[in-house]
Amino acid sequence: MINSAAIRVGNGTPVFNVKIDVNNLKISIKDVCSRMSNGTQSLDAHFYEIINEIFAHLSEKCRIRAGYVICPADFNLTSNRKSKVGNIHFNMGKIVTSQLKNAVQMAVFACTIGPDMENWSRHSMEQDNPAESYLIDRTASVLTEKAVDYLHEYIGGEMAKQNLLITNRYSPGYCDWPVSDQHLLFSLFPHNFCGIRLNASALMHPIKSVSGVIGIGPDVEFKEYMCNRCRIKECTYRRKHVKNTNTIIRGIAL
C-alpha cells in the first residue's frame, strides 16, 4: 500500500514523503525485455533465469524513497519565458512553460530506488558477468520509471480530493529545460531529500533517480508530449514517442 506523511520544513513548506513498496510496482519480465526482442523470437532461457534471479532480490535491493513539496506557481512572467515556483525563478523553456502556464501550484518531486541496484550491477560487471550486469541495470531503470509513475498517480489522487487537476511531469534536461536548473529545483527540497544528491554536472546520485515538476490547478490538463516542437531532435524520448516506427531504442551508451 502507498501512504504518505507530511512534515513541514523550516520555511513552512509542507513536504510529503510517499512510501512505495517495490512489490506494488508489479514489474514483469516483459517490462525488462521490451527492448530486447524483435517480436519474432524470444530471449535465450539463460537470460530469463537471470531476470528471475534478479526479481527474487528486489525487495532487498530496492529502497524506494519518494516525495514532493507543493509550491505556489507563477507563469505570468512570460516576457523572458521564466517561471516562478516558490521563490525560485526557472528557465523552463517554451515547451514546458506552455504546458504548465495554467498551473497555480506545482508539485516538485523526487524519487529514487536507492544505490543498491547500481552497486549490484557494477559488482556483477567486475565479476565478469556483463549480461547479468546489463539486466540488473535494465531492471533498475524500469523500476525507477514505474516508481515515478506510481508517485505521479498518487499526487494526482491527492489533488483530485481537492478538486484539482494535474499535468504531465517534466524534468530538467528534457523538453529543452536545461539540466543545470536541477540545482534550483533541489533548492526547493529539504537537505538530502530522499537521500539524493547532485554532482557538479547536475546529475543525481543514486543514478536511478528522477526529479521534476507536475503542474496543479483547476484548469490544467494532461496532454500528449510535444516532441515535434522540441529542438532536441536526437532525444531518446522523441524516438520513443514517435509512432509507426520499427526502430528499437537500444538504450545503451556507446
Binding site: 546529475l203 551508451a253 556507446l254
Partner: peptide, 17 residues
C-alpha cells in the same frame, strides 16, 4: 570514456570489450 555529466557505462564497456 563517457563524457562529463554522464554516468552510463554499459555501452562503453561493451565497446571496450
Amino acid at each position: 570514456g563517457t563524457v562529463a555529466g554522464d554516468l552510463h557505462d554499459i555501452g562503453k564497456n561493451l565497446v571496450s570489450m
